[in-house]
């Protein structure tokens, strides 16, 4: 995924006399405005700058993942820390308590809270583009171990008997980087944002994987 890339959709300017003279007037106004701004406060930027909507959506995604991690850190700080000699029972208890605390704090969490609608198309494009770039055998192999499931809910725990199928590394490296403790995983045809410490499903995007590479058993 390209970070902060422009979308290249600049408005086109037609070359005719009327437009040229309008353009000259606009430019003159712009120069005057720039001088005034400069006089009012050196280096101060205008309040509204045009923002690439794709970059803005990614920024929003990054902010939301960070907000989740901050929340988790806060929840963790209220729990007894895992010692270097932690037993499996203590590890399991810690995981469970952390999941409970996060669930309580995010009781209103819904699908789309992190993968907001404006960012979803970018994920779809990258994932589908990657799978399309592979031959069908390779694409099928990449999805071979992804578990099938029927229900998928935010704040549910990743089922312990489901493997954590590998996201093909080339694809993974084209997805937006995540903060520590969060991972992308596939579950059936869906992209899941997984908290690896609490095993909670933080959010997901449905049907990002084309059905052609998901053979039903």
């Amino acid at each position: 995924m390209v970070h902060g890339a422009t979308d290249g959709a600049l408005p086109m300017l037609r070359h005719n006399g009327a437009l040229d003279s309008k353009l000259m007037i606009s430019m003159h106004r712009l120069i005057v405005a720039a001088i005034l701004i400069g006089a009012l406060g050196a280096g101060r930027l205008p309040a509204q700058q045009p923002v690439n909507p794709q970059a803005a959506a990614l920024k929003e995604f990054a902010d939301r993942t960070k907000a989740y991690v901050d929340l988790k850190t806060k929840m963790k700080s209220a729990l007894p820390a895992l010692g270097a000699d932690a037993t499996p029972a203590e590890i399991s208890k810690h995981e469970h308590q952390l999941a409970q605390a996060i669930r309580r704090a995010r009781s209103n969490a819904r699908q789309g809270d992190v993968f907001t609608p404006p960012v979803v198309p970018q994920f779809r494009t990258v994932i589908r583009g990657d799978l399309r770039s592979r031959d069908i055998r390779d694409a099928l192999a990449a999805m071979q171990e992804v578990p099938y499931t029927v229900t998928l809910r935010v704040n549910d725990t990743w089922p312990s008997d489901f493997p954590l199928a590998t996201i093909p590394p080339r694809l993974l490296n084209n997805l937006y980087p995540l903060p520590d403790g969060l991972e992308y995983r596939f579950l059936d045809r869906h992209l899941v944002l997984l908290d690896t410490e609490s095993h909670l499903i933080v959010d997901f995007v449905r049907d990002v994987v084309p059905s052609i590479v998901r053979r039903r058993r």
Binding site: L82, A84, D85, A86, P88, I91, E95, E145, S160, P163, L164, A165, T166, T196, E197, H199
Partner: peptide, 12 residues
């Protein structure tokens, strides 16, 4: 491995 809980990393 893909069948392991990443929290195994805390198992002494």
């Amino acid at each position: 491995g893909n069948h392991d809980d990443p929290n195994q990393r805390f198992y002494k």
